[in-house]
């Protein structure tokens, strides 16, 4: 097994991990503070990608597109919170799931109505194209390195926001006791809208960053949403630290499993059965890991309030 391949896979796992963290951070914040299960989080990811692609095509600048993706996703999040989500906080989780699932359909068909059925084009900015040589004989795409840096920066920023600012203090207070901070005179409705918009903006940022690597199309958010839910369940629902470590764990396990599991099986079973069995097993791997962790820590690695 060449070292270069292992290093490259570790970086790939890290990159997938920080991407998942951007999604999972919003999801876990919204659940932690408002107690809401938001299935439409993947739609906000899609909104970010489409906004970035549309603005980048119109202005020719990826960076303006990136700004637009943050603004559009935050705005979409705030509007949805005020018009729909606000009515759901006191309902049980089944109602929340139904209503936010309906939002997925509304967002998907709305996007198709606006942009058509064909995938949009969104390319990497010229400054970040190509691959660089890293120590150990590894060639790695610059853009993926940039994503890793952005993800780590956002993680540090979120940590500072939550542990060092007044807004963060209110968010933490909201997680501990919603009614009490309302009674203390904090405008809980505005706080909810702000937290929801913040989560939406992070999802939109993830969508725009990944959109340049993948295909900007309707329905792109749902596969990521499933992984993000796995991340917050592993990390402990409501915990930002858990989301961060869970995301890195899922990213690295998924990436390593996809390449090394089929090779391991090939050594045991021969190439033909290993190709399809390995493919099937490696796609199950993160769920197996999740089941294993939940067997020992039923509330996840860093359950809030535990």
């Amino acid at each position: 097994m060449p070292t270069a391949l292992i290093i490259e896979q570790l970086l790939n796992g890290l990159q997938l991990g920080v991407m998942l963290f951007l999604m999972a951070a919003g999801l876990t914040l919204i659940f932690g503070v408002m107690g809401l299960i938001n299935l439409a989080h993947g739609s906000l990811y899609m909104v970010g990608a489409f906004a970035c692609a549309a603005v980048a095509a119109w202005t020719g600048s990826f960076w303006l597109g990136l700004v637009a993706s943050l603004a559009a996703a935050a705005a979409a999040g705030a509007i949805v919170e005020v018009t729909v989500i606000r009515r759901l906080y006191d309902r049980d989780h089944l109602d929340q799931v139904l209503a936010t699932f309906a939002l997925i359909l509304v967002f998907s068909e709305g996007t198709r109505w606006l942009f058509g059925s064909f995938p949009l084009y969104l390319d990497i900015p010229p400054a970040l194209t190509g691959a660089v040589a890293l120590p150990g004989g590894v060639f790695y795409p610059v853009y993926r390195l940039a994503i890793i840096l952005v993800g780590l920066a956002v993680a540090v920023g979120l940590w500072l926001l939550i542990s060092r600012t007044r807004l963060g203090m209110r968010i933490r207070a909201g997680e501990s006791d919603r009614e009490m901070i309302g009674a203390l005179g904090v405008d809980i409705r505005t706080l909810y809208t702000v937290v929801f918009a913040l989560g939406a903006a992070l999802a939109g940022l993830a969508g725009a960053l990944v959109g340049a690597l993948q295909s900007v199309q309707v329905g792109m958010g749902e596969p990521v949403l499933i992984l993000a839910f796995v991340v917050i369940v592993i990390g402990g629902i409501g915990s930002i630290k858990g989301a961060f470590l869970g995301a890195l764990l899922v990213g690295v396990v998924d990436t390593m499993g996809r390449i090394f599991l089929p090779q391991l099986l090939a050594a045991l079973l021969g190439p033909a059965p290993a190709a399809s069995l390995g493919g099937a097993l490696s796609s199950m791997l993160i769920y197996i890991v999740m089941a294993g962790i939940l067997a020992f820590r039923p509330r996840g690695l860093f359950a809030a309030g535990a």
Binding site: L5, N12, L16, F139, L213, Q214, T255, R258, A275, G279
Partner: peptide
């Protein structure tokens, strides 16, 4: 190499690394 990916997969970094190697 002969690789089967997940249906609907969107990130191919792992497969591309295999192709390179």
């Amino acid at each position: 190499g002969e690789v089967y990916t997940q249906l609907g997969q969107t990130d191919y970094a792992a497969e591309i690394a295999q192709i390179r190697a």
